[in-house]
Design a protein around this nucleic acid. Structure first.
Lengths: 232, 232
DNA sequence: GAGAACTACCCACCTAGGGGTGTAGTCGTC
DNA sequence: GACGACTACACCCCTAGGTGGGTAGTTCTC
C-alpha cells in the first residue's frame, strides 16, 4: 500500500484552506450530484472543476473516484489515478464493498474506500481523515443505497440507483452475466432489475433500452479519466 | 394519384436551368454519395443544400427521397414530402421494388420510383422525365445493388449496402423479424446478414453492433425530414 | 474462365434474454 | 404500524438471437 509521504501541516480548522477534491466518474449527473451534496461544506471541502472538457490543471488533495456504471476497468482507472502525481490521494466512492474489491483498491494505492450511503457530514469527515493521512474504509452498507442528495442518470425518470447502474452497464454492451459479475449480483437479480427497468422506461427489448439510455444521460463520457491518464 | 398540374415550359436544353433537386434521407454519407454521383451532371441536375442544420428554403423541382435504413415510417415520410408545397414532385430512390411499396408510393402521390441500381446517366434522364411531367417507375432490379459511386455508412469498413441497411435497422432497435418485414427479406436471410455484419465489424452481440453503428455513422438524423414536416 | 464476394435463403441446434410469479428483509413515509 | 418501494434472489417457461453449415444464382475482377 502506498504510504502517505507528506502529511499536511497541523493547524486549526479556521486557518486551513479547505481540502481540494476532484471528482471522477463518466456520468455528468453523478458528479453534479456529489458536488451539490458537498457544497454546503465548501468551507471544508472545495470541489475542483468538474467540466469534462477541461483537465484538472492543478494538483488536488484528493481524487474522489465514483464507481457508478464502471466495468472491470475501474481497477485500471484506480491505478491511473494513483499513478498521477497531481492526485495526492485517491478515494473510491461506491456501494460495492465486496472484500476483493476493497483489497484490490488498497493494493493499487487507494487511501480511502467510502460508501455512497454515508450522509454528507460523514463523507466530509472521512475525506478530512484521509487528508490527514489515515487510510479510511467505511463500514460496508448492508445493501446498495445512496445518500440523500446524490444523483444518477434516469433518477428523474423514476429509476433507482441500482436500476440505473444495471442500465448503465447494459448500455455499454454488457450481457446479463457480465453485469452480474461486475456489480456482484446474482444473474437472477440482474434479470429482475432488467425487467423493472424496461417497464419503467417503457421498452420491450435490450436494444431499445440501450437507445433510451443513450438519449437520457447514460452515455459514458471518458474524457475526465482520459485527462487523468494523460490524454487530450 | 396526384396529377402534375404545372408542366415546365418547353425549351432547348441549352436554355433551361438545371433541375433543382433536394435530397432527403437520414444518413449524411448516403446523401453525400448521391450528390457526388450526380455532380458531373450539374448542368442538368443541381443539388439543393444538403446540410441537415438548414431547411431547404426555396421550392425545389424534385425531392429525391432515399429509403436507405428507413423503417415503415417512410410511407409517412413520402406523404409528408408530397404534401409540402415546396416539393413540386417527389421521387423515391430505393432497392425495394415490392409491388405493394411501389403502389403505395404512387397512391401517396410520388411521381417517380427509381432504382438505386440505375447508373448516374440513367438516373439523370429519369429525373428529367419526371420533371417533364411523366410518372417514372424504373425496372425493378433483380436484386438489391447500388450503382457505382453511391455510398452508405460502413462502406469504408467493408459492409455491403445490404449489410449496412440491415445494421441501420438493427441500430434503430428493430428485431430480426421487424427487419425482415421492413426490408422484404426472409428472417433466415436477415440472420445470415446479421452474422456477416457481426464478423466484419468484430462484435459478438446485438448491443455491441448497435454501439458500433452509432459510432460509425449509423445514427439516423431526422432533422432533414423534420424540416420538410414543418419543424425546426 | 476461375475465383471471390454478394444477394438470398434454408435447416438444426443452443443459449441469452425476457416474462411471469414468487419470497424475504429493509427502509422511508404517512 | 401499515404500506409501498427498494434490494436481493429463486424458479419455470418460452422465444429471440446467435452459431454452424449448407445451397444457388449473379456479378465483378483478374
Amino acid at each position: 500500500m502506498a504510504a502517505d509521504d507528506s502529511s499536511p501541516d497541523e493547524c486549526s480548522p479556521d486557518e486551513c484552506s479547505p481540502i481540494l477534491v476532484a471528482l471522477v466518474d463518466d456520468y455528468d449527473v453523478v458528479l453534479a450530484g456529489v458536488a451539490r451534496m458537498l457544497d454546503p461544506f465548501r468551507d471544508r471541502i472545495l470541489i475542483a472543476e468538474i467540466d469534462a472538457n477541461e483537465p484538472v490543471k492543478d494538483e488536488v488533495d484528493i481524487v474522489l473516484y465514483d464507481s457508478f456504471g464502471q466495468p472491470e476497468s475501474d481497477h485500471d482507472e484506480i491505478a491511473v489515478l494513483v499513478r498521477n502525481p497531481r492526485a495526492r490521494r485517491v478515494v473510491v466512492y461506491t456501494w460495492n464493498f465486496h472484500r476483493e474489491l476493497v483489497e484490490n483498491a488498497r493494493e493499487l494505492g487507494a487511501c480511502g474506500y467510502l460508501s455512497k450511503a454515508l450522509p454528507a457530514e460523514d463523507l466530509v469527515a472521512a475525506l478530512e481523515a484521509v487528508h490527514a493521512g489515515e487510510i479510511v474504509v467505511s463500514d460496508p452498507p448492508p445493501r446498495a443505497v445512496s445518500a440523500p442528495g446524490l444523483d444518477w442518470p434516469g433518477r428523474t425518470e423514476g429509476l433507482s440507483d441500482r436500476e440505473a447502474e444495471v442500465l448503465a452497464l447494459i448500455t455499454q454492451g454488457f450481457s446479463n452475466a457480465d453485469v452480474a459479475r461486475l456489480a456482484f449480483l446474482s444473474p437472477n437479480t440482474v434479470k429482475s432489475y432488467v425487467r423493472t427497468v424496461y417497464r419503467k422506461i417503457g421498452v420491450e427489448s435490450r436494444t431499445k433500452a440501450v437507445l433510451w439510455g443513450l438519449d437520457h444521460g447514460f452515455r459514458p463520457d471518458h474524457r475526465r479519466i482520459e485527462h487523468w491518464r494523460g490524454g487530450p
